[in-house]
Write a protein that binds this DNA or RNA. Structure first.
Lengths: 290, 290
DNA sequence: GTGCGTCTGTGATAAATTTTTCACAATTCT
DNA sequence: AGAATTGTGAAAAATTTATCACAGACGCAC
């Protein structure tokens, strides 16, 4: 546990000169395609390096490991770390605070979430979702639950500027069935549902589906049951060191979607934004400068 | 040999729908830190996924492998290949999309925002803000504007669980002066204000100040004029390749604050959360599993 | 070339671990 | 209530690891 710093690769390279012929052969073979070769059975590694089994066993211990399994465990640990951070991991975000400060721990977690979410996201699915949301010929319903209504709200607010023909629905409200009366085939529902998944939301999705609507779902890695009804599911990782889940990554996706949809609809949007600006100016609701 | 194309990760993701609860749990665990976790002993993988050993054995065969060792061999093969292929992957967030894709461009920008925000943030100020917000002897007012009311809402919602004695104010509403009548010296206002800064918000801040209240401000890098009245200003970078600004970084700070405040108030919060859970259970508003 | 010490491979074996499989009970979903 | 899924505990099978003794190979000095 002491040496979180020095990788096995480092350690081997450092000792390379002090090694004997067979050991060097083995060492080079390990480094050859690192770390894959070291993660297989000892026998395979020996054969791959053209050395004998005892040579491998001897050298692993020489490197300071209790045995081959111990060596592998460490290798896997490195692999984990390196997968997490293509770039420098052990930087602290808020330099002025220690790395155990909640600011750094939380940010670490969120960055991890972002990385993992994007890595698993299917861009084609995302594009398809954007196209659906951008399509002004379809009425757009945006649905949020108890926690997620803020995200729904955020999306709704921006979409209001970008396109007409949309409705904000709160699944926790008991008025939502009314909205569904107006839903037609081909309309689009953007639904937010993260754990704890809400029964209302599921029912709403089922009814929307029954009316022939398309469904775009924002959910978490455990996936809301709505995903079985959805045309596109966008899955976010939401784990943070807190009693709550994080909405930051979902927010990122929502904003990205806003940006993408805006680009798709740019011709019609720019006029709408222009008008909006003018209205703000005339009402003096906002200050232009500090 | 045939399938140099389809990785195990792909294969798992593809089948994710067809899997049962425990299998999905396992699948997510494998993907969680891929491929490291799959390269260890079967027993460890099972334990890590909170799943029984036979479940792992069964699923590996379901995925089309002769056995766990076979599965591992393929994983190592992938690892070899990915190490060989120069890069291109580690540069982009959504590996499956080109780096010019909006997903990658937007994420780049947000990560930059986070980095920059945290680098400039004063942890002591942040801690002070959290202490103010956590102090139950002060009434807590949370104020959002036209765009930022979603963030304010998010904070309010969580604070409602964590502590009593708080109020949500929308500066765009014309009812906010009423709230101020009740504000006492020492009360705390958490105010969100990003460009375009809102006159209403500024006026509200001035009146709050005049009544001797403390002010915690979330703002952007150009800083709302409210910052001159604030005891603590938390400044976020919000630039993204979009016609809009990004709330993702602000969301990150808000969530971190929620976590920190919750920790400060843990003793009293845990009972409140417990009660909340019970209420949810009894109302059956939520589903426990998919 | 000889001798010496070190290094390495062989083949075998024992020990340890891991994988696979079973039947049955418990749980959860429908 | 019934069907499907999952966990338990155990045992057997298979594989992998660790060691050993010894013989051959090699480098090197004389």
């Amino acid at each position: 546990m002491a040496d979180a710093q020095e990788t096995i690769s480092d350690r081997i390279q450092h000792q390379l000169d002090a090694l004997t012929r067979a050991e060097r052969q083995l060492a080079l073979s390990i480094l050859e395609d690192y770390p894959a070769s070291g993660l297989g059975p000892l026998t395979a590694l020996a054969k791959g390096a053209n050395v004998s089994v005892p040579t491998v066993a001897r050298m692993v211990q020489k490197l300071g490991f209790k045995g081959y399994p111990d060596f592998q465990t460490q290798l896997r640990g490195e692999l984990r770390d390196s997968a997490k951070s293509p770039l420098a991991k052990h930087e602290t975000w808020a330099g002025a605070a220690p790395s155990e400060h909640i600011l750094n721990r939380f940010t670490d977690a969120v960055i991890d979430n972002i990385r993992s979410t994007l890595a698993h996201l299917n861009p084609a699915a995302f594009d398809e979702a954007c196209a659906l949301v951008a399509d002004q010929s379809r009425h757009l319903y945006i649905v949020g639950g108890r926690i997620t209504h803020t995200l729904a709200d955020y999306l709704f607010m921006h979409m209001q500027v970008i396109r007409p023909n949309l409705t904000h629905v709160r699944s926790t409200s008991n008025t939502w069935p009314h909205y569904l009366l107006n839903a037609n085939e081909g309309d689009v529902f953007v639904i937010f549902d993260v754990r704890r998944y809400e029964n209302n939301t599921l029912k709403l999705a089922q009814m929307a589906r029954a009316r022939g609507a398309r469904i775009v779902l924002f959910t978490d890695q455990w996936r809301s049951p709505v995903h079985r009804l959805a045309d596109v599911s966008l899955t976010c990782r939401i784990i943070v060191p807190s009693a709550w889940d994080s909405a930051a990554t979902t927010m990122l996706l929502v904003e990205t979607m806003i940006s993408a949809v805006q680009t798709l609809n740019w011709e019609s949007t720019k006029d709408r934004m222009q008008e909006l600006e003018e209205m703000f100016d005339s009402t003096k609701l906002f200050r232009k400068f500090t």
